[in-house]
Structure formats: structure tokens, C-alpha cells
Nucleic acid binder design. Structure first.
Length: 272
DNA sequence: CGCCAGGACGCCC
DNA sequence: GGGCGTCATGGC
């Protein structure tokens, strides 16, 4: 990890990171791009720890007002800086389609997000589009001043959540909050379970099916073998992987999936 | 206006 | 166990 302390900021050099590609590729919904003199700047949070981070030219990043201690204990982990993405992409590039996807947006990294926040966020994501998902989560966080805890959300009802305009998903949010708050679902325990047990446990929550469970495992628990299949990935699999996704990439299939998702969504037709 | 969205549930066979 | 209609809401 190549970083230095500069006044109140941390300067990071990381060629395998692009903020636009990583923070706006459908894995996290609370980052917003803000005006600045840099190439790009984003503001967001890990749960309730805020961050303003800028990208300045090739592979140079500024973590504004972040101490070395906070950088190392929080943000280095969040941006998965200890994983060698150059090496990952080399392995992915043995596959023709993945090679193109990595060439299209090679600055994607798998964020290590909070499991509870992912659970609620991806319940909201079902049969929904990304701009509207962001809107619902914005209204949720604005109401509390931060992403609500399970205890806070457990007090709500579908009626009291009407302001979210989340439709049929409100009752799912309430069930998830009650289960997590009561300890009926123990997310830390789920994170440590074998994959099949973890999947089964998450799907006990009403409104959590195969896709949402995979998203929680991948984005909120960093289980890189989790492989969420939504309508976009379904198209990729049908078109490019009729014989199935390569077994050799199984351990990091979820990260590969992230490159593929971003690729197909941004090259709707004929891109190849 | 109609089609679609990082799906899951309930019901049917 | 697989197939299909339904579920709110609004982006495009």
C-alpha cells in the first residue's frame, strides 16, 4: 500500500482504483459526486463515518481530513487495498469476455461494506432501478441523519415507512430489522458460516431470496465466491457463458461478476 | 404512454 | 420442484 501523510490528508497511489467505476457501479448506493477542482470527488459514509475522497490524475487519491490511524483502520479496508487487483485482473483476462470487461473498467474494486446496510440496501434493490434505489436510501438516511441501526428500524412498520415510497419492499425491511434486532438473524455468525449454510440463513428473512442473499454475502461479508445473478448477469451468462461460468475463477467469481455487470450495463449493444 | 428495473412470494400443477 | 402472475414505484 503506497500512501503518505500530507497535512490533514492522506495521499494514496493506487493504479487499480477508479472512483467513478468503484463508487458508481451498483455495489454501493450512498456515494455522491460533488464539485471540486480534482478529476472527481465523492462524499459518502461507511455506516456513520463520513469521507470526502478525490481522484487527481492517474492513480492518485486524496482522503480529505483523514488521519493515518483512521485511514489504516477504516478506509484501507473499505477500499480493499490489501488485495492485489492487478493479479486478479491478470487471471480474469484468460477469459475473453472478462478480458474485455477489465479493459473497459479496470478500476473497479470490491468494497468491503457493512453487512446490515447491505442487507437493507439490497432488499430495497429488488425489482428496482439504481436511481430509485439511491433515492429510497437517501430518504431513509435523511430521516435518521445516518443509516438506521437494526434497533431503530425494528420500531418501524410498513405504514411508518410510507415516506420512503419503497412499495412492497417496506414489509421486507421491517422483517429484516426485527430478525436482526432480536438476534434471530446474527449477521456476524452468518459471515463465518459455510456458503450453503449462510445462504439458507439469510433466506429465512422474508424478502431475501437467492439474489439478495448473494449480494449480502459478496458486498457486506466479502465472500468473493458469492455470485449475484440479476437480469444483466443473466444476459451475460446466456450470451457468453452458455456452458457455465469458468470453474477456475470460482473463488473470485463475485469480483469477476462486478466487472461483467458494469461492462454490459454500459455497453448495451454491439460494443464487443 | 409502455416497458423495465441488481427479485421474491404465493399459488398452481 | 419448475412456471407464472403479482407486487409499488418511478426511470427512461
Amino acid at each position: 500500500m503506497d500512501y503518505s501523510v500530507a497535512g490533514n490528508d492522506i495521499i494514496l497511489h493506487e493504479p487499480d482504483l477508479d472512483l467513478d467505476e468503484t463508487l458508481d457501479c451498483g455495489q454501493a448506493f450512498r456515494w455522491r459526486k460533488t464539485a471540486s477542482d480534482y478529476d472527481c470527488t465523492y462524499e459518502g459514509c461507511f455506516v456513520d463515518t463520513p469521507l470526502r475522497v478525490s481522484q487527481d490524475g492517474r492513480g492518485r487519491f486524496i482522503f480529505h481530513g483523514v488521519s493515518e490511524q483512521e485511514f489504516l483502520s477504516r478506509w484501507a479496508d473499505y477500499f480493499d487495498l490489501s488485495t492485489d487487483y492487478a493479479d486478479l485482473k491478470r487471471r480474469f483476462s484468460a477469459d475473453e469476455t472478462l478480458s474485455k470487461a477489465c479493459g473497459f473498467a479496470g478500476g473497479i474494486r470490491l468494497l468491503r461494506q457493512d453487512a446490515w446496510e447491505c442487507l437493507i440496501s439490497f432488499i430495497i434493490s429488488q425489482n428496482n432501478n439504481i436511481p430509485r434505489i439511491k433515492g429510497i436510501i437517501d430518504r431513509l438516511c435523511a430521516n435518521y441523519g445516518h443509516f438506521p441501526t437494526a434497533a431503530e428500524l425494528a420500531r418501524e412498520t410498513p405504514d411508518s415507512l410510507a415516506y420512503l415510497r419503497s412499495g412492497f419492499r417496506a414489509k421486507y425491511i421491517c422483517d429484516a430489522a426485527k430478525r436482526v434486532n432480536s438476534g434471530d438473524t446474527d449477521l456476524a455468525a452468518v459471515a463465518a458460516m459455510p456458503m450453503e449454510d449462510a445462504r439458507r440463513e439469510l433466506q429465512k428473512i422474508t424478502g431475501v431470496g437467492p439474489k439478495v442473499a448473494e449480494c449480502v454475502l459478496l458486498y457486506g461479508m466479502h465472500r468473493t465466491e458469492a455470485f449475484p445473478v440479476d437480469v444483466w448477469i443473466k444476459r451475460v451468462l446466456a450470451e457468453y457463458y452458455p456452458a457455465g461460468f469458468p470453474e477456475s475463477l470460482k473463488d473470485n467469481a463475485g469480483i469477476a461478476q462486478q466487472y461483467l455487470f458494469h461492462y454490459v450495463r454500459n455497453l448495451p449493444r454491439k460494443g464487443d
